[in-house]
Amino acid sequence: MSDLQSTLPTIGILGAGKVGTVLSRLLLAAGYPVHIAGSGSPAKISLIIDVLAPGAVAMTAADVARTSDIVILALPLGKYRSIPADLLEGKLVVDAMNYWWEVDGIRDDLNDPRVSTSELIQSFLPTSRVVKAYNHMGYHDLDEGPTPAGTPGRKAIGIAGDDDLALSDVAALVDASGFDPVLVGSLRDSIALQPGSELFGANFTASGVQDALTRFPTTERGLEVAAAREQEIAA
């Protein structure tokens, strides 16, 4: 381990799919030690990781949760109850998951406009500090888009959470991985990063992300969310 790696937090990634392996490469390039788990055994995942994210260490999900300082959730959202919640007590957890009905099935609980999916994750991990990040940019753009801080036209990643220190730590992680962090707001506000929003799938600069956030309340999805939440309050 290099001197740089020994001073940086260990990043754990639950999910060895396209997003998980791209994030592994970005964070390894930034000097972070990375532990990763997939749906198969560590021995099987190692064969994939050696090709797609050389330098990352394949482990079981439990060992990733146990040995990492920051854990990124990059698995299908419908499998969130498989996350080892007891091993994430007190830890910073980055929610990079999205609801895909093609993968997760028709799930009204994962597509409720009254509640962001990160709020569901925070409820499932009540003692963890959950921050939404890395979910709204396509994996190709994540892979091809990182640039040093200060680069003109640098792309941006929206982050949202309820804990100021956790937000600061994730902002540093996003910046180190090659993107400008843009504060979206609370976990409740993170619904503006989910599928159906202008930001989802977007590859914007920081100003572009801010502009899209400003427009969100007037968009079809933003109006749907506002109406559903107003009905909930009225009830």
Rank of each mutant, 00 (worst) to 15 (best):
Ser177Asn: 03
Gly145Lys: 02
Phe124Met: 06
Leu120Ala: 08
Arg66Ala: 15
Met97Thr: 15
Asp108Ser: 15
Phe204Ser: 12
Ala235Arg: 15
Asp163Val: 12
Phe204Ile: 00
Asp175Lys: 05
Asp164Met: 08
Val51Met: 06
Ala212Phe: 05
Glu224Gln: 14
Glu198Gln: 13
Gln194Asn: 12
Gln194Val: 00
Thr147Ala: 15
Asp175Asn: 11
Phe216Tyr: 14
Gly31Asn: 10
His35Asn: 15
Thr21Ile: 02
Thr151Ser: 10
Ala30Arg: 08
Ser207Met: 05
Ile70Thr: 03
Tyr80Gln: 08
Val34Asn: 04
Leu193Cys: 11
Leu165Thr: 13
His35Cys: 11
Pro181Ala: 01
Pro146Tyr: 10
Val184Ala: 05
Tyr32Leu: 07
Arg66Tyr: 14
Gln194Pro: 00
Val184Leu: 09
Val71Arg: 02
Val103Glu: 10
Ala234Thr: 13
Leu73Cys: 04
Thr117Pro: 01
Leu77Asp: 04
Thr127Ala: 07
Lys18Gly: 13
Val115Tyr: 06
Glu198Thr: 07
Glu144Phe: 01
Ala206Val: 01
Ile72Phe: 13
Pro9Ala: 02
Gly17Gln: 04
Leu173Thr: 10
Ile49Gln: 04
Val209Asp: 00
Ala227Asn: 09
Ser128Cys: 10
Glu198Pro: 02
Thr21His: 02
Ile49Glu: 01
Glu102Ala: 13
Tyr32Cys: 13
Gly78Pro: 04
Val57Tyr: 03
Asn203Cys: 04
Ser128Arg: 05
Ala192Lys: 09
Gly201Cys: 01
Asp69Gly: 11
Thr60Asn: 01
Pro195His: 06
Val115Thr: 15
Phe216Cys: 06
Asp162Arg: 10
Val64Asn: 07
Met137Lys: 03
Leu165Gly: 06
Met97Pro: 00
Leu27Ser: 07
Asp86His: 13
Arg215Ser: 07
Ala37Ile: 06
Asp143Tyr: 13
Val22Lys: 01
Asp112Ala: 05
Tyr80His: 14
Pro84Ala: 07
Ala58Cys: 05
Thr147Ile: 01
Arg66Thr: 09
Gly31Glu: 08
Pro195Gly: 12
Ala16Gln: 04
Asp189Ser: 12
Ser82Leu: 15
